[in-house]
């Protein structure tokens, strides 16, 4: 066996299991990958978390390939022959609604709306919370006092009711629903980011960066924020289910996505009239909401346990 020209660390094959788990990583790259691998091992040991991840991956795939997967047009139905067909009728696996539209196709296309809402809320609310929290925690003093007071005021609001009032003022529609949910979602993120920031605000490495002449701006953005990310990601993932439920609630009340968009909450609302005889019209979208938010909850739980084994116990 001829030795490779360049030996890495203690003779481990790069990217092998032992290389990843090495106690003495020889490069930042190896250390980072090794840490990710350890987290992945903890995460994947949790079967429920894997199931959650599976559900979310499936949701994303379905949303991407909705056009290919959907057997029928989600908006245009067959009013003549296919009204309120029961699940299992040939060609309509989950039945049809009052306008002769295939429920399965609507659910498949609705996954895009669900993802749209969730991703957009996360993109708006998480950075806002992160910035407010880290600035507040790092600056301290009156900046902290004022920012946290504002955060507390928003935290004191019942989320759904605030979102309702906001949408009522902005006018119904999926974009406004996203905005309203984002406005109600950021305060917990700010709280978490602030708490994390406080724990290492006075630590040695921040002092070191300060001594090297870094501006507060740079410290917050380059050194503090990345460290807050992991707990923030966990919290955002756990919140996804709540966001989906709020969005569905707004849709159900007619304040979210407008017809004929196949939004799951609105689909339940339109199926409500037939609930006694054609239960599937309302039942199917509800089941879809349940499965997806369950997926996010399982994934979030698993991530939390994997990233923070203290909390997980056992």
């Amino acid at each position: 066996m001829s030795a490779p020209p360049l030996q890495i660390g203690d003779n481990l094959k790069p990217y092998s299991r032992d290389w990843l788990l090495s106690e003495q990583p020889t490069s930042r790259h190896q250390a980072r990958l090794g840490r990710a691998y350890v987290i992945w091992r903890r995460f994947s040991a949790n079967r429920l978390a894997l199931a959650g991840l599976g559900i979310i991956v499936l949701l994303v795939l379905v949303a991407i390939f909705a056009d290919v997967l959907a057997p029928h047009n989600p908006v245009q139905g067959d009013l003549m022959n296919a009204r309120l067909l029961a699940p299992g009728t040939s060609g309509y696996l989950l039945g049809t609604d009052d306008q002769g539209r295939d429920i399965l196709s609507r659910l498949i296309h609705g996954s895009r709306l669900t993802l749209f809402v969730v991703v957009l809320v996360a993109i708006i609310a998480a950075p806002v919370g992160l910035i407010i929290g880290t600035v507040s925690g790092y600056a301290g003093g009156w900046v902290d006092a004022v920012l946290m007071r504002i955060t507390d005021i928003f935290l004191a609001f019942p989320k759904l009711v605030l979102a309702l009032a906001l949408v009522a003022a902005l006018g119904p529609g999926i974009e406004n629903a996203v905005l309203a949910i984002a406005v109600t979602s950021w305060p917990p993120y700010a709280r978490i980011a602030r708490a994390e920031t406080m724990t290492f605000r006075n630590s040695e490495f921040i002092s070191a960066v300060k001594l090297m002449g870094a501006s507060p701006f740079r410290i917050v953005f380059r050194h503090v924020m990345p460290l807050c990310l992991s707990s923030l990601i966990v919290r955002v993932t756990l919140d996804m289910a709540g966001i989906i439920l709020t969005a569905a609630g707004l849709g159900f009340l007619g304040l979210g996505a407008q017809p004929p968009l196949p939004e799951w909450g609105a689909m339940i609302a339109s199926g409500r009239r037939f609930i006694l005889d054609q239960w599937w019209v309302a039942a199917m979208p509800g089941a879809a909401i349940l499965i997806v938010s369950l997926g996010f909850n399982l994934l979030g739980d698993g991530l939390r346990d994997a990233l923070d084994p203290k909390e997980a116990g056992q």
Binding site: G249, I268, A283, I289, L290, S293, F296, N297, L298
Partner: peptide, 16 residues
Amino acid sequence: LIGYSVPIFWLGLLAL
């Protein structure tokens, strides 16, 4: 977990 994940209005309809 189901309690955290289920849409309340939907469960209400089914219960009715």
